[in-house]
């Protein structure tokens, strides 16, 4: 790698600029990575809570519907469910957490009051109400879990990308640039030394020639006398 670079002063200055830029970028990315990890840990806690709530809600809903199916019959439970064709609505927006765009899911018409569930109150029982309540609760938790877990996934991807960038800068780009810089510096120093040596040589040779000429001139003068 280093051998590919021409050891010129101009390249050295360019490399020094790149090193400075990369180091600044490295610091910034490192800060971003740490920030993302902190945010991620918060979301992780939230996600774990929601996960365990989801498990609980699911178990409760299953239990309630099993009891309703046992006591009222599957036909009655299905009938009550068929008495409503309106579905809950979900709208998604997005929010920005440290540059990561994560979804924000808003749900409406999930929880319904007794007179909005479709089935008649007079001919149904609390078992069906409680099964419906439990499923509404479960649905709300699922929606919340979807929001938090998607945010978590996106954060993880971003952390992974940032980490790769930081590592690339730290372990590849910056060492390469430093190596190049060193190489150029060495080469330039070497060239300088060669130059000095060459100049010294020339100077010595010139002095030698001058001495020879002076000796020669002296000798000629002595023979003329």
């Amino acid at each position: 790698m280093a051998e590919d670079v021409k050891p010129t002063r101009k390249n050295l200055m360019a490399i020094e600029d790149r090193i400075e830029l990369s180091e600044r970028g490295h610091d910034t990315l490192e800060q971003k990575r740490d920030g993302l990890i902190m945010e991620f840990m918060d979301i992780l806690d939230q996600a774990q809570d929601i996960r365990s709530k989801l498990d609980e809600d699911y178990d409760t809903a299953q239990e309630k519907i099993n009891m309703a199916r046992a006591m009222e019959g599957d036909v009655a439970v299905r009938g009550a469910a068929a008495a409503l064709k309106e579905h809950p609505e979900i709208t998604t927006q997005s929010k920005n957490i440290m540059g990561v765009v994560v979804p924000q899911i808003e749900s409406s018409r999930v929880k319904k009051s007794l007179d909005q569930r479709g089935y008649g109150l007079l001919g149904s029982s609390a078992r069906i109400d409680e099964a419906a309540d439990a499923y509404e609760e479960l649905l709300e938790t699922i929606i919340l879990a979807a929001e938090v877990e998607t945010a978590m996934k996106k954060m993880l991807e971003e952390i992974e990308t940032t980490k790769r960038r930081v590592n690339a800068l730290e372990f590849k780009l910056l060492p390469d640039l430093h190596e190049n810089k060193e190489y150029i510096e060495q080469k330039l120093e070497e060239q300088e030394r060669e130059e000095i040596f060459r100049l010294k040589k020339i100077k010595a040779k010139k002095e030698e020639e001058e001495e020879e000429e002076a000796e020669k001139a002296e000798a000629e003068a002595a023979t003329a006398d």
Partner: peptide, 10 residues
């Protein structure tokens, strides 16, 4: 919603 009809029947 079917609530009024169901209640009427019951």
């Amino acid at each position: 919603v079917l609530v009024p009809l169901e209640n009427a029947v019951d």
